[in-house]
């Protein structure tokens, strides 16, 4: 009798574990299915942008859509996109504003982060806390007065108006200060004993050691110029505006019809540099982003 019971129990156990194994496999399949479906939803707009930008208008408006262009019309669409939205001018504007504001911003950020991390002065902590507090205020609140300030300064429709108001970012100063603080103070004191000047120490020791953070700041700042829309629309006209401004309305004719393939070509042109940044510099963006939640 006892033997029979044992055998039955053994069989039960093996059945249970077989069931568990099937369940586990099924669960894994479900997890993968969920992830792959979500990934396809994420990727679909990019796919649609690229294939639409390659179609002719006639093919685009077919009632049964084609999933891959039958007739490839890439060159005409992309060159039309460039000329219709004067993208080359806007691209140069954006590049100029992006590069100049990034360089100046890096200098200002390095100097102030150094002061907050290494130098001693009265009211340092209070000043730093006050700067951090300004990060909580929504940017729209600044825009109203800044609009007025730049009008009084006579900066309307210049490159200066796109660069100067945004040179200082408290968040970047904070990020770099944290990085500077990790560098042992002994290095600084040793350099002082050797008679090295602060600037030389900063250039030879601090900057090389915090290069990853500086790269993160550079990428985020450049992406900011590339994606900024509201401020340039407020303070510039066509000849000084940035790339995103040229995008939205350039492809709709007076009768309201839109040449979608050309529009999608322009969108692809604007997205392409961002895509390159994503492929090659992803880890720096992820590092910067995971500490901020600020886009651009």
């Amino acid at each position: 009798m006892a033997d029979e019971k044992d055998v039955m129990r053994a069989r039960d156990i093996s059945q249970v574990s077989a069931k568990q194994r099937v369940g586990k496999v099924l669960f894994h399949i479900l997890v993968y299915a969920f992830l792959i479906i979500m990934a396809l939803i994420i990727l679909f707009p990019f796919y649609w942008m690229i294939i639409s930008s390659m179609k002719t208008y006639e093919e685009y408006i077919r009632s049964v859509p084609t999933l891959w262009p039958h007739e490839i019309n890439v060159i005409a669409n992309y060159s039309n996109a460039f000329s219709q939205a004067s993208l080359s001018r806007l691209f140069l504007n954006t590049l100029y504003v992006g590069v100049v504001s990034t360089l100046l911003s890096l200098v200002i950020t390095v100097l102030s982060a150094f002061a907050f991390a290494r130098l001693e002065f009265k009211g340092k902590n209070a000043l730093f806390a006050a700067l951090l507090a300004t990060m909580m205020i929504p940017g729209e609140l600044f825009t109203i007065t800044n609009y007025q300030t730049v009008t009084v300064f006579g900066w309307m429709n210049t490159y200066t108006v796109l660069i100067v108001p945004f040179l200082v970012s408290v968040f970047y100063i904070y990020l770099l200060r944290q990085n500077f603080l990790q560098i042992p103070n002994e290095l600084y004191l040793a350099a002082k004993v050797d008679g090295t000047s602060d600037i030389k120490y900063l250039w030879k020791v601090m900057i090389p050691l915090s290069l990853p953070t500086l790269i993160s700041i550079t990428i985020l700042k450049m992406m900011g110029a590339w994606n900024s829309y509201i401020w340039p629309r407020l303070v510039t006209k066509d000849d000084h505006s940035l790339i995103t401004n040229g995008l939205r309305n350039a492809f709709t004719a007076n009768d309201g019809t839109t040449n979608y393939p050309v529009q999608m070509a322009a969108v692809a042109i604007v997205s392409f540099p961002l895509f390159l940044v994503f492929v090659f510099l992803r880890k720096y963006i992820m590092k910067g982003v995971s500490r901020s939640g600020i886009k651009g």
Binding site: I42, P45, N227, M264, L274, F275
Partner: peptide, 23 residues
């Protein structure tokens, strides 16, 4: 997959909005 899911972050919200509008 982690890379794929991060892709929308590095986009221009006007540009991709126009793609959604077209869709």
């Amino acid at each position: 997959l982690q890379t794929v899911f991060f892709l929308p972050y590095v986009t221009n919200s006007i540009a991709i909005g126009m793609v959604f509008a077209a869709m």
